[in-house]
Nucleic acid binder design. Structure first.
Lengths: 160, 160
DNA sequence: AGTATTGTTCATTTTTAATTGAACTTAGTT
DNA sequence: AACTAAGTTCAATTAAAAATGAACAATACT
């Protein structure tokens, strides 16, 4: 049977929230559609299905599916308990803690890991015997370590 | 007069440092060429001119000029005292403090400002009278404020 | 002054990243 | 079991970002 037809246009508030999250997400280097999906869930009173998102945001099913996948991975979105019919419905996890945690784990840590292995490789080079170069490489390592130390602090402060 | 011809190829260490900074810079949403320019200056024993950078990195003069401009704006690079001839030479400001400070000031703060004005606009909408919506908007504002508070702390921790 | 060299700007091109949509897979319904 | 709707995947397209290079501007050397 046919549900409430999903033609409801986007409200002014929704538009502003979408713009807010598109921007925020771009700063973090994620695609804008991901920000829009999260934004719409964030400002929605009820959980939304993939269909709902696709029709309201006027994006393709493919984008919607991929965007939701990323948001699930980040832990920014969760399936709603309500399982009416065969669709799955999503709602935003609107806790800064979850968002920051997911971003750190999936977007930041991997880069720090890769930085670590690059530094390890630098130490094996002949140039590393030169004091200027070794000093510079070790400075990079100090930076890397400090970045790693800051993350839990960040998480603690933001995730209250 | 002709200087030491700038054909010196890139060393293995240099290659690794460039890769390190290209990656780092991409995480921050800046173009890779900017990372490479900074990287080469970071690992160079002497200050380098635009020409030096362009020939070693094999990038166009245009990219080089734009990249240096961005790095100057961020305060990540400074003109060397040495003014031999008519070229200007640059060296990396290799203090994490400067880098973080510049990024916060030029890349982060402006976004927080724009977020602030978006929230102000949301508060003026009719929907804001609905308690669910006002609660959400105020949550966004809480997040924004918290992000603003974290920056100086970040700066303090990283900029030691 | 005139000339040569260095540096910037910006319209075009190239490269990279995101989105689409059609084919496919999975799961629910009758 | 056959059918139908939901969701995923991925090759192809489109859109966004960065790099190029030629024209221009600024500077300093003679």
């Amino acid at each position: 049977m046919s549900e409430e037809s999903q033609l409801s246009a986007i409200s002014e508030l929704e538009r502003k929230v979408l713009s807010f999250f598109s921007d925020a997400v771009r700063v973090l280097g994620l695609p804008k559609s991901v920000g829009e999906i999260y934004g719409l869930l964030f400002i929605s009173k009820e959980p939304l299905s993939l269909d709902n998102l696709v029709s309201k945001l006027k994006i393709s099913k493919g984008s919607g599916s991929q965007g939701l996948k990323m948001l699930r991975t980040l832990g920014a979105v969760k399936e709603s308990g309500e399982v009416s019919g065969r669709k799955t419905y999503y709602e935003a996890d609107a806790e800064l803690k979850s968002l920051v945690g997911g971003l750190i784990k999936h977007e930041v840590r991997p880069h720090l890991e890769s930085a670590k292995s690059k530094i390890t490789a630098m130490r094996k080079l002949d140039d590393y015997n030169d004091s200027f170069y070794s000093e510079r490489v070790e400075k990079l390592n100090k930076w890397r370590k400090r970045a790693g130390l800051v993350l839990p602090i960040l998480q603690k402060i933001l995730g209250k």
